[in-house]
C-alpha cells in the first residue's frame, strides 16, 4: 500500500500564483476525480507534482510514502512511481514508440542490467492488444500526426507499461469520441482491477468520463484549492447545476 500526500501546496508560474493551498491524500487503488472550471489550476497542479521545471512550488510539500519528492527532477519522480498522463502529449518526430518506451523501461532497471527484449515486446504487444492499438504503431514516431484518440490511447499504453504507483491523468477525456473514451476507460479500469492497482488522480472537466471510470472520491477545485469533496453523486450534482453554482458559492469566500 502506497500513499501520495499533497500538503498545502502552493504553485506559481513566474510571479503568478495558481495553486493556493491544495491538500489531498491518495492511497493505492483509489480513484480521486478533480473537477472544476477552466483556469482553476487543475493542470498546473498535475504538472507541478510531476516536476515540470516551469512551475515553482512556493510552499507546501508532496510526499510519496512519507518522503518528499520535491527535490527530485521529473525523471526521478517518474522512477519513484509517479506518472503524468498529459492533456496535450508532446509530438516527438523521429523517435519511435518502441524506442521511446524501451528507453523508459530501461531507465527503471538497475545499473548494468540489460533489458530482456523478447519479454519487453511480448508485454508491449499484450498491452497494445488490450488497448486495441495496432502493432504497426510501435514504429511510428511518438504522437507525431496522431489523432486525439490515438494520443490518449498512447498515454494509457505508457501507463500500462510503466506500472506507476500513482497516475495523474490530466483531461484524459478531452478530444475523445465516445468509442475512444470507452477504450481508454477500459484500459484504466483494467489497471484498477490488478494486484498493483495505482492510485489515480483524474482531472476532468466533464462528468461523462466518470460514467466510465467510476471514482471513489470527487473533489471540486476552485481558485487553486479544493472547496468541496464528496462521492460520485457530487459529480452528478455539478453536472446538473453547472460550474456557475460553484462560482456563486465560492467566489466570495
Amino acid at each position: 500500500m502506497s500513499q501520495l500526500e499533497i500538503k498545502d501546496l502552493h504553485v506559481a508560474i513566474g510571479d503568478k500564483s495558481i495553486v493556493k493551498g491544495f491538500s489531498l491524500t491518495i492511497r493505492s487503488g483509489e480513484v480521486h476525480a478533480i473537477m472544476g472550471p477552466n483556469g482553476t489550476g487543475k493542470s498546473t497542479l498535475a504538472k507541478a507534482v510531476a516536476g515540470h521545471p516551469d512551475y515553482t512550488i512556493t510552499s507546501g510539500d508532496v510526499l510519496l510514502n512519507g518522503a518528499s519528492i520535491l527535490a527530485q527532477e521529473a525523471d526521478e519522480r517518474a522512477r519513484s512511481g509517479l506518472f503524468l498522463a498529459f492533456q496535450y502529449p508532446s509530438e516527438i518526430p523521429g523517435v519511435s514508440i518502441a524506442n521511446f518506451l524501451r528507453a523508459a523501461v530501461q531507465a527503471r532497471l538497475a545499473e548494468g542490467e540489460e533489458l530482456d527484449a523478447t519479454a519487453y515486446y511480448k508485454r508491449l504487444y499484450a498491452k497494445m492488444d488490450l488497448l486495441k492499438i495496432d502493432r504497426k504503431f510501435t514504429s511510428r514516431s511518438v504522437n507525431d500526426g496522431f489523432s486525439g484518440g490515438e494520443k490518449k490511447r498512447c498515454e494509457i499504453l505508457q501507463m500500462a507499461m510503466l506500472e506507476p504507483k500513482f497516475a495523474l491523468m490530466d483531461e484524459t477525456d478531452s478530444g475523445l469520441d465516445i468509442d475512444a473514451l470507452r477504450i481508454v476507460a477500459d484500459g484504466v479500469n483494467a489497471l484498477r482491477g490488478g494486484p498493483s492497482a495505482p492510485g489515480i488522480l483524474l482531472i476532468t472537466h466533464y462528468q461523462r468520463l466518470l460514467d466510465h471510470i467510476v471514482p471513489d472520491h470527487v473533489h471540486v477545485m476552485w481558485d487553486g484549492r479544493i472547496v468541496k469533496s464528496g462521492d460520485k453523486s457530487l459529480a452528478l450534482e455539478l453536472e446538473a447545476k453547472g460550474y456557475d453554482w460553484v462560482k456563486k458559492e465560492f467566489a466570495a469566500a
Binding site: A50, G51, H52, P53, E73, A74, D75, A78, R79, F83, L84, F86, P89, S90, I92, P93, G94, V95, N99, F100, A103, A104, A107, R108, S141, Q158, L162
Partner: peptide, 26 residues
C-alpha cells in the same frame, strides 16, 4: 519534449540523446 521524456523516467542526458536521434532520423 524533454519534459515529456523525463516524465517517463528517462534522465535528461538520455532524453537529449533520444531527441538527437529523433532529429537525425529524417
Amino acid at each position: 519534449q524533454e519534459f515529456y521524456l523525463q516524465s517517463r523516467g528517462i534522465a535528461k542526458p538520455d532524453a537529449d540523446e533520444l531527441l538527437t536521434f529523433g532529429f537525425f532520423e529524417e
